[in-house]
Amino acid sequence: MEFKALMIIALGAIFINNFVFSRFLGICPYIGVSRQLDSAVGMGAAVVFVMTLASAVTWLIYEYLLAPSPANIFFRFFALTEPPDLTFLRTIAFILVIASLVQFVEMVIQKVSPSLYSSLGIYLPLITTNCAILGAAILNIDEQYTFIESVVHGLAAGVGFTLALILMAGIRERLELAEIPRSLQGIPIAFIMAGLMAMAFLGFSGLKLGM
């Protein structure tokens, strides 16, 4: 049962509610970094990694620091009469956590694996302002996911984003050779391609995921 629920969340985040094609999250890097397959793979891997980590950390922060739940740390250790409601600090706390997390991951990768750093490093700073990361964190809270569900959702959403990015990069590499009207070259044709792919992804909405 538990596993089935997780599968539904994962497949839903990859195909039905794909971050790029249906939720419109992470469009800037999607258009910006999809020119070449290599960079698309690099960016995708960085996003999957950070998104999974950010989902876990932001969920913990929300549950134990911000939400007015009995588990709230301020409530437990500072002898307050009732759990404080700090949910209004969600946006500010999440974006700071994500920014520091990205910085931290960058430092760790640089120390541990210089070769990985040289391939992923340039994409990491771009991730802070990638709305897909903050979007995933906020969605986890809005959908009232548990900790495990949040992590799975973050991971799957990252995979869905990577899928979209790689598909697009594959097509754009070929588009280089195609004859396109001059006005549509570059970003406009990328958007039109994305529109066609979004149509294809609409087909997934017919999937009946054990509901």
């Binding site: 094609f21 001059r182 006005s183 406009p188 958007f191 994305a194 979004a198």
Partner: peptide, 25 residues
């Protein structure tokens, strides 16, 4: 209907950007 569905958003901005490029050209 497709215009207010997600694909419509991509198509619209693609063609609008193309139109502005055309004006510039």
């Amino acid at each position: 209907l497709i215009m207010i569905l997600p694909p419509g958003a991509f198509l619209t901005i693609g063609f609008v950007l193309g139109f502005f490029n055309w004006l510039e050209n």
